[in-house]
Computed example of a mutant assay.
Amino acid sequence: MHPILIVEDDENLAELYKQVLLKAGFQVHTAQSGTEALEQMKQTQLDLIITDVMMPEMDGNEFVSFLRKFENDLPILMITAKGTLEDKKIGFRSGIDDYMVKPIDVQEMVLRVEALLRRSRVNRDRAVTIGQTVLNQDQLFVSSETEMVELPNKEFQLLYKLLSNIDKIFTRHQLMNDIWGFESDTDERTVDVHIKRLRSRFSRNRDFEIITVRGLGYKAVAANEK
């Protein structure tokens, strides 16, 4: 079940979208503004966002721009009454992936959501395999040749992020934004603590290693690249 966040201040429309998406098999969360959406994102792992433009506190374009500023690459579908070419330019330049003009066909919305997920990295198998090590994102399990470990959520998400992007360097700031959220009060040293725990847990694992890139951050390497 892909978790989706609907950001829409019209309660009737939000409920309509929600029911249609629930019927299509998605897990659905709702927020009435960009500000409320950011709060929800601190607690919820998402696969896609649907947002309106005209909302209180923080409009849809500001919300999307804020997400992209922090390198969040979730697919975003914008549904709005603002349908001119200029409006669409503003939306796409803020970082959206698709655009629908109200009133919409809700079945077309479902098709577009499915298409965005197909094109997105989040629509791959929710397991990552490195050698004999398998990370199952639905159950937070890490299994290897000799053991199966259930990790706390943050440790799992951190390891999943690194092993999904072998050899890619992530700064502490990037990892904080992706795992703990943009506005988290948690200190970046928390990343170091979680990395230390992961290294300890998987010290005997022969499939991968988490490397410190001095002055930058961390990356994971596969066994044959150590």
Results as ranks from 00 to 15, higher is better:
L5M: 11
V7L: 11
D10T: 04
E11W: 04
A14K: 08
V20P: 07
G25K: 12
A31N: 07
A37G: 13
E39Q: 15
M41N: 01
T44A: 05
D47S: 09
L48S: 05
I50L: 15
E57Y: 08
G60M: 13
N61E: 04
F63K: 09
F70L: 03
E71G: 00
N72P: 00
D73A: 12
L74R: 02
L77K: 09
K82G: 03
T84F: 05
E86Q: 15
S94M: 07
I96N: 02
D98M: 15
D98G: 14
M100W: 07
V101L: 11
I104D: 01
V106W: 01
M109Q: 13
A115Y: 01
R118G: 08
V122N: 13
A127G: 03
V128M: 07
I130D: 00
G131Q: 03
T133E: 04
T133H: 08
Q137N: 10
D138N: 14
Q139M: 12
Q139E: 12
F141E: 14
S144A: 09
E147K: 10
L151D: 09
K154F: 07
E155H: 10
Q157F: 01
I166K: 11
K168W: 01
T171A: 15
R172H: 09
N177S: 08
W180I: 08
T186P: 00
E188M: 10
H194T: 04
R197M: 05
S200N: 12
D207N: 14
I210D: 08
I210E: 05
A223K: 01
